[in-house]
Amino acid sequence: MARPNRFYDVIRIGPVQVGSHYDGRGRTKHTAACTAPGCGFSADYRDRSAAELAARTHRCSP
């Protein structure tokens, strides 16, 4: 069974949360996910700055 992601350094930018985690190979990944109801936006990035930029420019369209 796969181990769940352990997010650290989590911040919130509007309705989007950005957090960092280690993937199965020990690399650091950064995830941006919208928490608004009905919005399904989430994406993984290699750079923290890219994840934060996605969070700042995201517009919900549920």
Rank of each mutant, 00 (worst) to 15 (best):
residue 1 M to E: 09
residue 1 M to D: 09
residue 1 M to T: 07
residue 2 A to R: 10
residue 2 A to F: 07
residue 3 R to S: 14
residue 4 P to F: 11
residue 5 N to Y: 12
residue 5 N to V: 13
residue 6 R to L: 09
residue 7 F to D: 04
residue 8 Y to V: 12
residue 10 V to P: 02
residue 12 R to H: 06
residue 12 R to A: 09
residue 13 I to C: 05
residue 13 I to N: 05
residue 13 I to L: 13
residue 15 P to S: 14
residue 17 Q to A: 05
residue 17 Q to Y: 04
residue 17 Q to D: 07
residue 18 V to Y: 02
residue 19 G to H: 05
residue 19 G to P: 03
residue 19 G to C: 05
residue 19 G to N: 00
residue 20 S to Q: 11
residue 21 H to W: 14
residue 22 Y to F: 14
residue 23 D to V: 09
residue 23 D to A: 05
residue 23 D to W: 02
residue 23 D to L: 04
residue 24 G to K: 11
residue 26 G to E: 08
residue 28 T to Q: 15
residue 32 A to S: 11
residue 34 C to A: 07
residue 35 T to P: 03
residue 36 A to V: 00
residue 38 G to L: 05
residue 39 C to H: 07
residue 39 C to Y: 07
residue 39 C to W: 10
residue 41 F to R: 08
residue 43 A to D: 09
residue 45 Y to R: 05
residue 46 R to I: 14
residue 47 D to F: 14
residue 48 R to Y: 04
residue 50 A to Q: 10
residue 51 A to W: 01
residue 51 A to Q: 04
residue 51 A to D: 01
residue 54 A to S: 10
residue 54 A to T: 02
residue 54 A to F: 04
residue 55 A to D: 02
residue 56 R to T: 06
residue 56 R to K: 14
residue 57 T to R: 11
residue 58 H to C: 02
residue 61 S to W: 08
